[in-house]
Amino acid sequence: MHDSILDYRGFRYLWVALILSIGSIVAYLWHDPIGVPNGGSWLGYTLGTIGALLILWLLWFGVRKRRYSGATGSVRGWLSAHVYLGTTLILIAFLHAGFQVGWNIHTLALVLMLLVIFSGFFGVYAYLRYPAMMTRNRADSTRDAMLAEIRELDGQTLQLADKVDKSIHDAILSSIQHSQLGGGVWAQLTRRDDSAIALAKLKEAVLKSNGESKQSKSGQTMVMMVDFLANQANDTQSENLRRLIDLVSRKRALATRVARDIQLQALMEIWLYIHIPLSLGLLGALTAHVLSVFFYW
């Protein structure tokens, strides 16, 4: 039935990767090069070729994923292989280089490769961890539905605020106008939502209309609102205000959930913005590495 990318077909590609790794290690230990192990020996060239071909194949995943009528295996199989064989690449690259590093184009390619692979590790973690969290957070709703409900609540809040007091209406209006969900990368990742501002503004407005300039005893908006309600003589007024608080808190809960949803989605995508550009960089560095090696041969 459902299985994840890791246990695809009984860990098929884990075994492939393990066999490739063990084979490489055995060859590396058995091989007795002239001088120190390095990329210039026949084993070095062999491992280098395997590594380079692997990199090209790993990059081709981006194309395969979008070739929807492609009949070569399922995308899930490809991704499973992508993860395991990509991991093996660390070992193969180091064995290829004989664990030599320096300040040169060759090591740049190695560093880029490692960055790509480790960003990929985060991707695997994100793919396995965040989807379930996202479902739980959405609680059977969709983001569009939640946003629609927020808009709806905004409308109702405004109407109600209008009945209560002008200053409260202004406060609500400005908080709606200024409220924002999502936005730039940072805003998405840090789960910024401005719904708390609505409550703060409401508090300010209530204080003002109440003629209190000092801070009330309690810093908590809700408690303060309740105080305010208790002081109100007018029944309909306090009823309206009570409903207003309900609406604003409901909106706040929703906005928090939407922001969390955006955050999780961003977390599932952000690593790709490192993984893919760096892998293209790696392709450049790899080309330079191969060309320079042949040039100085």
């Binding site: 459902h2 299985d3 994840s4 990318i5 695809y8 994923k65 929807y68 009528s69 009949a71 399922s74 995308v75 899930r76 490809w78 991704l79 793919y127 989807p131």
Partner: peptide, 13 residues
């Protein structure tokens, strides 16, 4: 090869 939606799903969901 069967339904594209299933074959294109990268995670097996």
């Amino acid at each position: 090869g069967g339904a594209s939606c299933v074959r294109a799903c990268p995670t097996g969901a």
